[in-house]
Computed example of a mutant assay.
Amino acid sequence: MTLYERDDFVERLRYRATVWRYLKLVVSGWWADRQAYARRRRGMIELAEMEDWQLRDIGVERSEVDRLLHQYGVAREQIKEDAAR
């Protein structure tokens, strides 16, 4: 193996490591986003299942909960289905 071939081989290995590192960052970022979305969704469902007096105790209005549910695309029917499971 000549010096040029060795340098070319090392450069290709370095490039592959960089690509895999970038791919790992993208996938781990996507996974963290999915987990955060699931936590927000569970929290909104818990708020939607609370009674009005419980929401008032924590300083939240029913209209705020409904607005968030609508904003994130969680329908009341989905909440009822999730609660039944």
Rank of each mutant, 00 (worst) to 15 (best):
R16E: 08
R16A: 04
R16W: 02
R16Y: 03
A17R: 14
A17C: 07
A17V: 06
T18Q: 12
R21P: 00
R21T: 08
R21Q: 06
R21W: 05
R21V: 07
R21D: 06
Y22M: 15
Y22N: 09
L23Y: 05
K24E: 14
K24N: 07
V26C: 02
V26D: 10
V27K: 13
S28L: 15
S28N: 13
G29K: 03
G29M: 00
W30N: 10
W31H: 15
W31D: 11
A32N: 11
A32Q: 09
D33Y: 05
D33G: 12
A36M: 14
A36D: 15
A36P: 01
Y37K: 11
Y37P: 00
A38Y: 07
A38D: 10
R41K: 06
R41N: 08
R41W: 09
R42V: 10
G43T: 08
G43L: 08
I45K: 01
I45W: 00
I45S: 03
E46P: 00
L47A: 05
L47G: 02
L47V: 07
L47T: 05
E49Y: 00
E49R: 14
D52C: 00
D52G: 04
W53R: 13
W53F: 13
Q54T: 11
Q54A: 14
L55Y: 12
R56T: 07
D57W: 04
D57G: 10
V60G: 03
E61W: 02
E61K: 12
S63K: 08
S63L: 15
E64Y: 11
E64Q: 15
E64R: 12
V65A: 09
V65T: 07
V65H: 05
D66Q: 13
D66C: 01
D66W: 01
D66A: 15
R67T: 04
L69C: 14
L69F: 10
L69K: 00
H70N: 09
Y72C: 07
